[in-house]
Amino acid sequence: MPNLLPSLACNLDLDLLAAALPLLEEARVDGLEWSFDALFQTRQVPAWFLDLLTAFGQEKRLVAHGVFFSLFSGKWSEGQRQWLKTLSEASQRYRFDHVTEHFGFMTGQNFHHGAPLAIPYTATTLAIGQDRLARIQEAAQCPVGLENLAFSYSVEDVKRHGEFLEKLIEPVNGFIILDLHNLYCQLHNFSVSFEELIPFYPLERVREIHISGGSWEDSLTTPAKKIRRDTHDNGVPEEVFNLLTQTLPLCPNLKYVVLEQLGNSLKTEQSKTQFYQDYLRMEAIVRDFNATHLNPIPEPERFLPPQATFSAELVEDEALYAQQVELSSILETAGSYEEAQQKLRTSTLAHSAWQVEQWEPAMLETAISLAQKWKKK
């Protein structure tokens, strides 16, 4: 009997917990995903929240989802060392079934500030990413995965993303979170079809799927086109439910299907009701799939590393780090798309592996918006 687990992304957020409580009371939630590194502003954690984590951890149904590690930063930071320490201690306490992080590097100079942006797919970034994943695996002592990014600068990057993810996780025998709303952003923003893009992803490596909502943003550089953004602040669109139905049969090692939504978008009764209905619809799709497919549930051993991959020597690249700092500065301070484009042309990123000359105007515009939004946080 297969058993894909309908699951919730749940953090110490009162609005999110209030929306999730009916689902927990009705025993509909079979797995819990916790952004363990989002508690940095909280001095004290209520005992009842720790009890909730423990309840899922004891059943091996608790997974950790990192936000702030900044996998591809060219320079190792004290924040990353502390992040690993926190992960190690949390892993010993809660028995995570697996741990995941996001693709990209974070803009901004301070840990816990900034937005994740894409990086060039080079031997240097591959080595840094593999090194960091090995350190995460060493700290967590459980399977490690990476989530596909919603943002890309060009359609070429979109099509190479899956292959690069596969290379990154190979040394740790890792897995992928396939975020279907992130995929939806790529499909829409680059006018690519699901059938065209999905073969580029290593679907046998997908252990977790995310669904969520997002929002539309006007583009000044491409007025006829709206940009889809992964803001997690709305209900799940019909297109994403359709993607879920299409994707489930393609992922033989899938275990968790997770609904995500931010608590700040769950303050009204109407939004809580929509969240509840979205979860029930996701749950129905998953349970229907369980009832008609006979693959055994994958075990963690499927994605445990075959041998130790951890090396004491840090992989860093000063030139990459300098480019990341320069790009962050340009995006965070540009008064307009034109200003950012002009600065990029005369930056160290010009005529480099970053291929800034190929970046789509609407996506550079979005990167500016992202960097400036999160700089203020």
């Binding site: 209030a18 409580l21 009371e25 009890d51 909730l52 149904r61």
Partner: peptide
């Protein structure tokens, strides 16, 4: 998954009184 009722009650109380 069934959550212990004591945990659910504590969550409800925690949400209510913050």
């Amino acid at each position: 998954m069934n959550i212990p009722k004591s945990v659910l009650s504590a969550i409800l109380l925690g949400i209510t009184v913050q």
